[in-house]
Simulated scan of single mutants.
Amino acid sequence: MKLKVGDQIPSFSLKDQKGNIRTSNNLKKSLVLFFYPKDDTPGCTIEACGFRDKYDLFKILGAEVWGISNGSTQSHLGFANKNKLQYPLLCDQNNILRNQFGVPKKLGFIEGRVTYIINSEGVIKHIFEDLLNGPAHIKEAIKALKKLQ
């Protein structure tokens, strides 16, 4: 089932690139949760670096930023270090969370690119989906967070 605006997100706990457990149950502020297809691909690198470059603005807007894909901790750590990412990349290695959110595949095999803006109560406030335009995800997230203030 595909989650929509107004839905409560499923409870989850996943490891990040450093092996730390990140859980949805401890949200104290808004969360920008972006699902991306794969570490070290051109589109995903542009998107991840866009979130990196605007990270201070997300903090000012009262939000955490978490990326998520099915990569391993080792893959995520290499990707994060190479691109100097200062936010966690969560490991959803069996796509369990991706499936719980209902993030679609494109062309039947490419993992989708979807960004969710979630409030501190775990309710989805905004969803943006665009496989090819990674930078648009950053702009949409900022716009949505400004509306929440």
Score class of each variant (00 low, 15 high):
residue 9 I to R: 00
residue 14 L to M: 02
residue 28 K to C: 04
residue 117 I to V: 15
residue 22 R to E: 10
residue 37 P to W: 04
residue 103 V to A: 13
residue 15 K to C: 10
residue 60 I to W: 07
residue 106 K to T: 14
residue 44 C to T: 03
residue 143 K to L: 15
residue 103 V to Y: 05
residue 99 N to V: 12
residue 15 K to H: 08
residue 33 L to N: 07
residue 55 Y to K: 03
residue 107 L to W: 11
residue 11 S to K: 11
residue 44 C to S: 08
residue 137 H to W: 04
residue 129 E to N: 08
residue 2 K to D: 06
residue 33 L to D: 00
residue 145 L to E: 01
residue 126 H to W: 11
residue 84 K to Q: 03
residue 47 E to I: 02
residue 75 S to E: 13
residue 136 A to I: 01
residue 72 S to W: 12
residue 133 N to T: 13
residue 131 L to E: 04
residue 130 D to N: 10
residue 20 N to P: 07
residue 137 H to D: 01
residue 33 L to V: 05
residue 137 H to P: 00
residue 109 F to P: 02
residue 11 S to W: 03
residue 6 G to H: 07
residue 77 L to R: 13
residue 3 L to W: 01
residue 22 R to D: 01
residue 73 T to W: 03
residue 81 N to C: 06
residue 77 L to Q: 14
residue 130 D to V: 01
residue 97 L to V: 02
residue 135 P to F: 06
residue 134 G to A: 03
residue 33 L to K: 08
residue 12 F to Y: 09
residue 54 K to G: 12
residue 98 R to M: 13
residue 83 N to R: 05
residue 123 V to I: 15
residue 141 A to K: 02
residue 102 G to M: 06
residue 88 P to D: 06
residue 53 D to F: 08
residue 95 N to I: 09
residue 81 N to V: 08
residue 118 I to A: 10
residue 18 K to D: 15
residue 57 L to N: 04
residue 113 R to C: 07
residue 149 Q to K: 14
residue 54 K to V: 13
residue 13 S to P: 13
residue 26 N to P: 08
residue 82 K to Q: 08
residue 113 R to L: 03
residue 31 L to R: 09
residue 122 G to V: 05
residue 77 L to W: 14
residue 86 Q to I: 15
residue 43 G to T: 00
residue 94 N to E: 13
residue 85 L to W: 05
residue 95 N to S: 15
residue 105 K to F: 05
residue 149 Q to F: 14
residue 122 G to C: 00
residue 121 E to H: 11
residue 30 S to A: 15
residue 64 E to C: 04
residue 145 L to P: 08
residue 136 A to Q: 10
residue 12 F to A: 10
residue 47 E to S: 05
residue 48 A to Y: 00
residue 140 E to V: 13
residue 141 A to W: 07
residue 149 Q to M: 07
residue 87 Y to D: 06
residue 17 Q to K: 14
residue 72 S to M: 10
residue 25 N to G: 12
residue 68 I to E: 04
residue 115 T to K: 02
residue 82 K to T: 06
residue 40 D to N: 06
residue 46 I to N: 00
residue 118 I to Q: 11
